[in-house]
Design a protein around this nucleic acid. Structure first.
Lengths: 227, 227
DNA sequence: ATAAGTTGATAACAGATTGATAACAAATAT
DNA sequence: ATATTTGTTATCAATCTGTTATCAACTTAT
């Protein structure tokens, strides 16, 4: 399953509204992640690096704009849209001062919400979050990191390139010649084919030390494929 | 708070409103340039490169959103806020679709307008009146100063540019080529890649002498990223 | 079924590459 | 003229990556 789409976090304690927002965003091609409170959101932000946040202000335990201010204090720069019933002038001002990018008051028009999301993403220079997922692997291309079940796994440059190539081509057997050209390029003239085995092996050990997940399936006499 | 050098174009055919908008923006430190129609605006954009545009839709001879769509077609990427009485759902949608970044309906609250202008400028990377934070670093762009835990840290011009570039691109590994282009520019033709190491190192030592905070994480064979 | 041959897995090693750091020199600004 | 900034070079240290050797697994021919 390939995914290069844009992910949006929504924090809203009223379930129907949360569902409504998620429905419209998904319909427009966004991936969404809903939360009923700010709990666990910070962890999620770190792990997933979503592209945008929509947040209510009247949340249980935590006031939405204070939460955003806190995030900003720690350098989190995610685009934020407040979606809230708090519509007094002072409320709106506070929302922007605390780091919001846009402020929509309830009741809201779903179509306008989507357009404002798109406008904000455009202006933030976000076209796609460039994350590729495969089974429980999450490859963050610009960040050059691999996350497996919320654990960061360190990869070398070569290993990253190799894994990227495989995840870009799932369910396809990549033969040794292809891998040599793709990963090692031209200078692989006098190139020991065992090098591929060794490199795959090192990668295997890093992302699946126990060997139980069988990510790389050897295809005899040909190459490997991702399983 | 000074916003010298940030210039905002306002296109509005009702003179009182134009004056009102200009008054509030100037009070917040912006330079303004008002137009009663779209006439001569294009020429002004080319010559002055203003940072933001506020535009009415019901203008004599020309519909504001069509004007913006036209600008966009020719590659003009200036942040645009519509300020208009056209408040039907379809009007608002049209405003965003034609390239607007924000949409404010009349009657409007001047304070909110200013805040929306500031938010949009911030998000557009026009930060000269802003501070950028990352972890415990506070970068004051107009003053070109760095504060760490309330201590002023002296940076050279080059170091400031480098740190700014990294903070503008969090969660992204910046490769050596990008850094060379971005920081050193074109004249880096015969350019020793070790220069990057050395410069990063000097910066590291200034902002984290003990090396315990690990701001700059080397990515082997690629570049660095902010940690 | 089995043995021979081929291919892949794994570990250890060594060379190569890359980054860190310090010292120096050139350039620039004050 | 002096101080500061910036680029270069040299040395050292860390890490990567290709090679080799050995063992294990698979294929095929008999």
């Amino acid at each position: 399953m390939k995914n290069t789409s844009i992910e949006i976090v929504i924090i809203e304690d009223e379930e129907d509204i949360l569902e409504l927002v998620e429905y419209h965003l998904q319909k427009s091609g966004f991936e969404t992640m809903g939360f009923l409170s700010t709990q666990n959101v910070e962890q999620f932000l770190e792990e997933e690096n979503p592209s945008l946040m929509i947040i209510d202000r009247n949340l249980p335990e935590c006031e939405g704009s204070e939460f955003v201010a806190e995030l900003r204090k720690y350098g989190c720069n995610i685009p934020v849209i407040f979606l809230t019933a708090k519509d007094r002038d002072e409320d709106i001002e506070e929302g922007f001062i605390r780091g919001g990018d846009d402020y929509i008051t309830k009741p809201f028009k779903p179509k306008e919400l989507v357009l404002r999301v798109q406008a904000l993403l455009r202006r933030s220079g976000i076209t796609s979050n460039e994350k590729i997922k495969y089974r429980d692997l999450i490859l963050d291309i610009p960040n050059r990191t691999l996350t497996i079940e919320n654990n960061l796994v360190e990869l070398t440059n070569l290993e990253f390139k190799l894994l990227h190539t495989f995840i870009k081509n799932p369910n396809i057997t990549l033969d040794r010649e292809f891998l040599r050209d793709e990963i090692w390029g031209e200078n692989g003239a006098n190139f020991n084919d065992k090098t591929i085995n060794v490199t795959i092996n090192r990668l295997k050990k890093k992302i699946d030390p126990t060997g139980e997940k069988e990510y790389f399936i050897p295809v005899w006499g040909v190459g490997y494929k991702l399983g």
